[in-house]
């Protein structure tokens, strides 16, 4: 077993893990506040990428393109909450999750109509080039992806822990009745959570596109990976989701690099299944609050 192969697999695993963690965090933000599993999270990521590519090709500089892409995606997130989730707010959790699936398919279909089936790419941010290290390669965009996830994590911790709005959001999750009784508008917080998830998803989408390409149908597989990360780590804690994402990414990459070829996927899934069976409530213990 070559050192360079192990190292390459670790690099790949870390990068993939950050992508999945970012997906999982988007799911966490919505679930944490509203108890709705937003299965359209991957579509926000896809839209972020596709829109950024489009705006760039119209001549908008990258920063502006990303901001515009985030703006449009945020509008779609608001639409999802205001016109689909909120009118159905009496429905069960699974019904609401199915509604988000419907929304995801609708976004996919519209994207196919507007953009076509072709895959699109972006150049690495600031034209970063690959770094070669001990026989392995770190792609130019990989540090941006890792950095984006780190910033997202730090930002979310600060937001939920230190700001009034963040605390209000957590209150809605922990104790909706209590939150309402102190004057927090649950509906407004729910809208905010969808808007945040959409915005974070879009930023993630723009950042991963130079690495992975984007197309109308990349949303659903991304959502599934995010779900895997979130369930493995435990949807009740952000730290768990991040850990779950890293675990999925590493399992995928290490089995691709080190296990007998042809069995990669089976082995990766077996590892994840074993983890899940060992800790069905998530990797990290819950903090004691009712789930």
């Amino acid at each position: 077993m070559e050192v360079s192969t192990v190292l390459q697999s670790l690099i790949s695993g870390l990068t993939l893990g950050c992508i999945y963690a970012a997906l999982g965090l988007g799911l966490f933000v919505v679930y944490g506040v509203t108890r709705v599993l937003n299965l359209a999270q991957g579509e926000f990521v896809m839209l972020g990428g596709m829109l950024t590519v489009s705006f760039c090709s119209m001549g908008v500089p990258l920063i502006g393109a990303i901001l515009l892409a985030v703006f449009v995606t945020v509008l779609s997130g608001a639409f999802l909450y205001l016109f689909i989730i909120r009118p159905a707010r009496g429905a069960s959790g699974s019904t609401l999750a199915f509604l988000t699936v419907g929304f995801a398919f609708a976004i996919e279909g519209i994207t196919l109509l507007v953009w076509g089936w072709e895959y699109r790419s972006l150049t690495n941010f600031l034209g970063s080039s690959s770094i070669h290290l001990w026989g392995a390669t770190i792609f130019g965009q990989a540090p941006w992806v890792v950095g984006m996830t780190v910033l997202m994590v730090v930002g979310l911790f600060f937001f939920f822990g230190r700001t009034m709005v963040g605390k209000a959001l957590r209150a809605c999750a922990d104790e909706p009745l209590g939150a309402r009784s102190v004057g927090i508008s649950i509906e407004r917080m729910a809208l905010l959570s969808f808007v945040m998830a959409a915005g974070l998803g879009a930023i993630a989408g723009a950042t991963i596109t130079p690495l992975t390409m984007t197309a109308y149908n990349v949303g659903i597989p991304l959502t599934i990976k995010g779900l895997l990360a979130a369930f493995l780590g435990g949807l009740h804690r952000a730290e768990g989701v991040i850990l779950g994402g890293l675990l999925v990414g590493l399992a995928e990459a290490l089995s691709a690099g080190l296990m007998p070829t042809g069995y990669h996927d089976a082995i990766a899934l077996a590892i994840l299944l074993a983890v899940f069976l060992a800790r069905p409530r998530g990797l990290l213990p819950s903090r004691g609050a009712a789930e």
Binding site: T5, T137, G262
Partner: peptide
Amino acid sequence: QHFDPAATDMTPQLAN
């Protein structure tokens, strides 16, 4: 080496 049709990172396989 094998890869998934929708894979986004094939560096481990390429390293092999």
